[in-house]
């Protein structure tokens, strides 16, 4: 069947989503078909999910990041679409949340399910700098659990966010997620000039937001749901690299592999 060869991606957009076009372009470049749908269409007709193999929540400022980044759309999903999302995952399909999409996945509980008593195990909150920043980061992958990161050891990608600091409820949660291999993407020192810090915490700006455990991306227990703060869709072309004009730079776009992995998963 053709559909199993070429996955169909639902790019879910909401008021304030703004990375939907380039994310769709990245998926298409990787060989997928894409459809951008407003969240209202899915709320009216949740059965729309059935047409798709991949759900992507792209970057942006859903509902203006008002109240907290990802909170309002996260609640909408939790209130109206949680079962559909759970089914989608249970069917072996893939879910990717980039930047605001990661914030939404965290806030709606789809990525790290909340404890009935203690509440959510983790959150994404304000950068230590207290402000939005756009800068490039060096990332390392950790483990083999995540479908999207298969075969990827490192990536150089931009972050552009104000609320990207990954914080767990306590240290034990962080250790458990680590032990379970779910902390799949981490900020690394940009160069050997970055000073080492005793507790393994990579300093600013290499860890751009002060995330605990230098966490930049987290997957769920199945490895088929990934949320990450950096933007892989912004590095799929040689000329995206901030130093592509320099002779020592060799790149074909580190981020493209994330989308290719998603597509390959269905081949």
């Amino acid at each position: 069947m053709v559909t199993t060869m070429q996955p169909n991606v639902l790019i879910l957009r909401a008021p304030g989503t703004n990375c939907d076009l380039e994310t769709a372009f990245a998926f298409e470049r990787a060989g997928a078909k894409t459809e951008r749908l407003h969240v209202n269409r899915v709320l009216e007709n949740p059965a729309l999910f059935e047409r798709f193999q991949i759900l992507c929540l792209p970057g942006g400022f859903s509902y203006g990041d008002d109240v907290a980044a990802g909170r309002i759309l996260g609640n909408q999903i939790q209130h109206h679409l949680a079962d559909r999302m759970a089914e989608f995952r249970a069917e072996g399909k893939l879910i990717l949340g980039i930047c605001n999409g990661f914030q939404i996945l965290i806030k709606c509980g789809a990525l790290l399910p909340p404890d009935a008593e203690l509440g959510p195990p983790a959150t994404l909150t304000w950068n230590d700098s207290g402000r939005f920043e756009d800068r490039w980061v060096e990332l390392g992958t950790d483990g083999e659990k995540c479908v999207f990161l298969k075969g990827i050891e490192r990536m150089y990608l931009p972050v552009a966010h104000a609320e990207g600091k990954f914080v767990t409820r306590d240290r034990a949660v962080l250790d458990r997620l680590d032990a379970d291999g779910q902390l799949v993407l981490r900020y690394r020192p940009l160069s050997e000039r970055t000073p080492a810090v005793a507790d393994g915490q990579v300093p600013f700006p290499d860890n751009p937001n002060g995330s605990m455990g230098n966490v930049a991306g987290v997957c769920d227990a199945t490895g088929r749901v990934l949320g990450l703060m950096p933007h892989p869709e912004r590095h799929i072309d040689r000329t995206h690299h901030p130093r592509w004009t320099r002779p020592e730079t060799e790149t074909t776009g580190d981020g493209l592999a994330v989308f290719v992995n998603a597509v390959e998963y269905f081949r």
Binding site: E22, R131, F132, D134, I236, T245
Partner: peptide
């Protein structure tokens, strides 16, 4: 740095360039 200068995915020459961006 407080401006997103790369959204829409078409950035070629950024406002800050060079060996250390």
């Amino acid at each position: 740095r407080q401006y997103d200068h790369e959204v829409q995915g078409g950035s070629v020459i950024k406002p800050l360039v060079g060996a250390n961006n």
